[in-house]
């Protein structure tokens, strides 16, 4: 069975305006990413700021043009579709943006916000009041919320409105960009539980972009870890958490302070700062920060190789279990 979404060797290239002393060039914010999102499953994309995770998501949602590669949605090529051809697909592929309040127009009521997708898609036959009630109930907000404006609701409620709006047209694929960033822990759980429940009820596939590993661990089936626009490791979530192969994955997992003052942490300390994608390091692009780098890493680009439950890009993968190493 083929996946709902098949991303193959996707490159998203931006033109860079040259400064006074440099000439104009281009930069690959996403550089050859391949992954599959299965129907009804959750895929997590993890990476630090500037790793290209949001750019990749936006390319899938048709908000950036992929320069190379292919993005197949149910077998249909999305790359190169003009806006007019993409519009019908927006009923099936929806994006939920990062900033919950900022992504809602302050001048529209909640009812207008959550029923706007029907108007945009020209579905005039719908009873918008009934739809608004249905959507609010779905995300667990009382019907009175229809008359409120974004400034009258809290951050957590704004997220729920964002979910209602994204799910208005019963999509098959939801792309959620940092759905819990800025939320308090008690509300973060509510948001993730809501997404999980809706996934079960509606059979949604979810692509979730986040830098929070604790979130990824609990709600995703597969996970991909990005560094400088490339996947460095990808696989079944449990396999990646149990036995991370790439040193960057290891460092991310270790850099996750636990709410336990006695936790024995195995810290994998990275050296230096993330390099700029304008000046990608030679060889393995992670070697400038890798604590385990060998001479070979500076010259030879590592191949994408399979491991248990996934694949990674490293000459010297960890190959051991973190639990065993910590004890």
């Amino acid at each position: 069975m083929s996946a709902l979404l098949e991303i193959r060797d996707v490159v998203v290239r931006f033109r860079v305006r040259g400064g006074v002393f440099s000439s104009a060039g281009s930069v690959d914010a996403v550089s050859g990413v391949s992954l599959d999102v299965e129907e009804g499953k959750t895929y997590g994309i993890v990476g630090e700021s500037g790793s290209g995770k949001t750019t990749l998501a936006r390319a899938v949602a048709g908000l950036h043009h992929a320069s190379e590669g292919s993005i197949l949605y149910r077998g249909q090529e999305l790359r190169g579709l003009v806006e007019g051809a993409f519009r019908p697909l927006r009923r099936e592929i929806v994006m939920m943006f990062q900033d919950p309040i900022g992504s809602l127009s302050p001048r529209l009521s909640v009812k207008s916000l959550i029923t706007e997708p029907f108007r945009i898609q020209g579905m005039r036959e719908r009873d918008l009041d009934a739809e608004a009630r249905r959507l609010l109930a779905m995300v667990g907000l009382p019907p009175e919320f229809a008359a409120r404006y974004p400034y009258q609701i809290s951050g957590g409620q704004a997220r729920r409105v964002g979910v209602a709006r994204a799910l208005a047209l019963s999509p098959r694929l939801l792309i959620a960009d940092e759905p819990t960033a800025g939320l308090d822990v008690s509300i973060q759980g509510e948001m993730l539980n809501l997404l999980a429940r809706l996934q079960d009820e509606l059979g949604l596939a979810i692509m979730i972009i986040t830098h929070n590993l604790n979130v990824v661990r609990h709600i995703t089936d597969r996970v991909g870890i990005m560094y400088l626009g490339k996947l460095v490791e990808e696989g079944e979530t449990e396999a990646v958490f149990a036995a991370p192969q790439h040193p960057y994955t290891l460092a991310l997992l270790a850099a996750n302070p636990e709410p336990d003052p006695d936790a024995q942490l195995m810290r994998v300390e990275l050296q230096g700062e993330p390099p700029s994608i304008l000046r990608r390091p030679k060889g393995c692009e992670f070697h400038t920060r890798c604590p385990f780098a060998q001479p070979r890493c500076a010259t030879e680009v590592p191949r994408w190789q399979a491991a248990k439950g996934g694949a990674h890009r490293c000459h010297f993968p960890a190959g051991w279990d973190t639990a065993a190493a910590a004890s």
């Binding site: 822990v185 008690s186 509300i187 973060q188 759980g189 509510e190 993730l192 539980n193 999980a196 604790n214 979130v215 661990r217 609990h218 709600i219 979530t237 449990e238 996750n256 302070p257 636990e258 709410p259 336990d260």
Partner: peptide, 16 residues
């Protein structure tokens, strides 16, 4: 509520 506290994978996270 802190998911970092929860070692076993769970689909339903605690909330307040």
């Amino acid at each position: 509520c802190d998911p970092g506290h929860i070692k076993v994978k769970t689909r339903v996270l605690p909330t307040i």
